[in-house]
């Protein structure tokens, strides 16, 4: 188990969120979409220019920018 930033996750890799290190508007948006500690995420793909990234979270798909993914720390195998 090691902790990495969501940005550095590879396609098809999954892990469990361990921390969301941002507040304010962005933090609120991230949390209300279910990206909170304990949630499992996996990377479904990336946009043609490698950014944003698309994720599978709790059975639905979500996309966010790499710069936003930076704040999310994920525990992976």
């Amino acid at each position: 188990m090691k902790k990495i930033s969501l940005r550095t996750m590879l396609k098809k890799q999954s892990g469990t969120i361990s921390a969301v290190k941002v507040g304010g508007d962005l933090g609120r948006r991230i949390r209300e979409m279910g990206l909170v500690p304990g949630t499992t995420v996996s990377v479904i793909g990336r946009a043609p220019l490698n950014d944003p990234v698309s994720l599978r979270v709790m059975g639905f798909n979500l996309t966010l920018r790499n710069s936003e993914a930076d704040y999310i720390e994920v525990e992976v195998n």
Binding site: L26, R29, P52, F60, L62
Partner: peptide
């Protein structure tokens, strides 16, 4: 103003 968070659902 800051760019609005992009965080967006990709509906099926």
């Amino acid at each position: 103003g800051e760019s609005t968070p992009f965080v967006m659902e990709l509906p099926p």
